[in-house]
Amino acid sequence: MKALVIDDSRTMRRIVSSVLRGIGYEAIEAGDGQEALDALEATDGVVLCCIDWNMPVMDGLTFVTKVRERAEWRDITLMMVTTEGEHAQIVRALAAGAHEYLIKPFTPDALRDKLELLGLLPVQEVR
């Protein structure tokens, strides 16, 4: 299973990618929403995107909106992984098409729990 980790912080991309690889994902990384759209164009089989909100070039909410406009990407699960924790921001992201929302900082177990809720844990990881 492939996951796309989208964050302008290289450190945060590495943290999220490391957790995902540890549970069986192939992680691909992008530094902003436009780079992520380009990666989706070039890569088949992405089932999950972990998306930061605040990024240069294209923010996470715009990325979510653009992904939801494309029929071929409708089955990709979109999860915001961001410091934006206000209720209004969460509502906006979910209304735009995000499936789940995880507020930074988070623990690896919190990320695994969200994936379990979404039915996206590889079989060997299901608890």
Rank of each mutant, 00 (worst) to 15 (best):
E125H: 07
D113C: 08
K66H: 09
I6T: 14
A88I: 13
D38V: 11
G97K: 06
V5K: 01
G33I: 05
Q34T: 13
G45T: 11
G119E: 13
V64K: 06
D32I: 04
A88T: 13
D38L: 12
A36I: 09
V5A: 01
G31I: 06
A3S: 09
Q34A: 13
E35T: 14
T107M: 11
T11K: 07
R21Q: 14
A96N: 10
A93F: 05
L118M: 14
V126Y: 08
M55P: 06
K66V: 02
W53E: 07
Q34M: 14
E35A: 15
V46T: 10
Y25D: 07
L78P: 04
D7N: 05
E69A: 13
L121P: 12
V64M: 06
A98S: 10
D32H: 15
L61D: 07
D113I: 10
R74P: 07
D32C: 14
A36K: 07
M55V: 11
Y25F: 15
E69I: 07
Y25R: 11
A96L: 09
W53M: 14
E116P: 00
H99E: 15
M58K: 13
L102N: 02
N54F: 01
E72L: 09
K66W: 04
G85N: 15
R112A: 08
A39N: 04
T65V: 09
G97E: 04
C50T: 15
E29I: 07
L102H: 02
N54V: 06
I51M: 07
A71G: 06
W53G: 00
V46H: 11
A95E: 15
V46N: 09
L121E: 03
R70P: 03
V16Q: 13
H99G: 13
D113W: 03
W73D: 09
R13W: 03
M58H: 03
E100D: 15
E86Y: 02
